[in-house]
Design a protein around this nucleic acid. Structure first.
Lengths: 240, 240
DNA sequence: ACACTAAAATTGGTAGGACCACTTAGTAAT
DNA sequence: ATTACTAAGTGGTCCTACCAATTTTAGTGT
């Protein structure tokens, strides 16, 4: 992406040609989401590099979620970046560059902003959906607790109409699933936190209905206040 | 790690073996940040796959920022994920999956949370640094305006002590540099917005000194209120 | 014994060919 | 027209060879 070619012999690596080529084609409007890329053998000819190098770039874009490789069919531009975020953060987590507290802090910031945006953008249907989920959450089994909770937050994220925030929140949710499922389940269903979370969820819903950003602010703080508290009590139980 | 081969033809792709292998070694503590990975030829032997496949994984991890490849020396575990985020978001931007408004909304959410965390974690030295930057920002040339502004926000992000949030904010900053430098410059130096931004920056600083989260909330909203307004007026000027 | 240099070994970067696995399109048989 | 089969196209994997940069080793001279 960053081209420092010709700068003291610092040579552009082959695979960057592929990425640059694709970006260029996108800019020109020749490639859009869903488009089929030239075949790998063809790309290697066009760019004057080996198929190996092409594949290294393709594989990277694949894992990053930019394209989707289908054996026998071809490479297609897609744009699912969630996976990439999950993989990245998963690695950061493993390398101890971040801990769960930081993940939770990030999530709080995003949930807050998502809720604020949702207040401006939520549709009637989404409010209805949300009301249903909140109601169901009040008397549900431990099994469905997580599913419904996810649904609630997902609905709000969707209502924010911000794909970027949605993707990151989804990635965070996946990350939590990956590393601390048990703890999540426990927090959601322990008697004391359950009540507070219900109140928080209710307040979030009310803030959306009344378009009350102050209430939204309080609701999110309440929600993550209890979560952070529980995390502090169980910090030792987060395993990798 | 889990090999589901032979299971109805659902075959694990070769390169995943490399990623799983590295993750496993990290979990076991055999690999940490800075460690040298086995040579590619060696890895291909260990995992029973071709060097090509190994390289596809290595290249991906390289671009993701997990490792750093140095020709002649070897592959080293690093953990610079910022680049990856920039590349990802850059692609999302190009593919029109996100627009600048969404980037700004994300940034608002993160700056808000960063400031809130900074209130709890900022050091004396950082407060001093910040005070200096804010003072300098009041009478500076257009050139230094951007640099100082970046420095201000970077200082707050650092003070949040949350590497994840720092990384994303840095990535957003890079993304802005990449696509809308001119607009950024203009917003920062146009007479009307300059005053409001100064007020916002001052309020942010005050909120840190007085540890006043309500003021922080207002300051961030003021800061991004004017930015969003300017963006609306110049939406047509964002090019790719 | 030390410092420096040059050769050798190591390691990532690139290339090209071969074949497998899967999908798609075209063709032939019914 | 439908189906079955074949052929072509395309990604997935492997191998071998060589280039380019770095590191290590051996050697040389003082």
């Amino acid at each position: 992406m960053i081209d420092r070619t010709e700068e003291k012999g610092l040579q552009q690596k082959s695979y960057t040609k592929v990425i640059d080529y694709i970006k260029q084609r996108i800019r020109e409007g020749n490639l859009t989401s869903g488009s089929k890329l030239p075949a790998e053998r063809e790309l290697s000819q066009i760019l004057g590099i080996s198929r190996n190098s092409v594949r290294e770039a393709i594989r990277t874009l694949d894992i990053m979620g930019v394209i989707s490789s289908q054996q026998g069919a071809g490479n297609y531009l897609t744009g699912n970046f969630e996976n990439n975020l999950v993989e990245s953060m998963s690695m950061m987590f493993l390398l101890n560059q971040i801990n769960y507290q930081q993940i939770s802090q990030l999530r709080r910031g995003l949930e807050m902003q998502a809720l604020m945006l949702a207040i401006d953008n939520i549709t009637e249907a989404q409010v209805k959906e949300l009301t249903k989920v909140v109601a169901e959450l009040e008397h549900t089994t431990e099994e469905n607790n997580i599913i419904l909770d996810k649904k609630l937050h997902y609905t709000i994220a969707t209502a924010s109409q911000n794909v970027l925030i949605m993707n990151i929140l989804q990635a965070l949710s996946d990350l939590i699933d990956q590393f601390i499922v048990d703890l999540r389940r426990e927090i959601l269903s322990s008697p004391d936190s359950k009540i507070i979370l219900q109140e928080a969820h209710n307040a979030m819903m009310q803030s959306l209905i009344n378009k009350d950003k102050n209430l939204a602010y309080e609701a999110i703080n309440k929600h993550f206040g209890i979560i952070d508290e529980k995390l502090r009590d169980n910090a030792d139980r987060i395993v990798k």
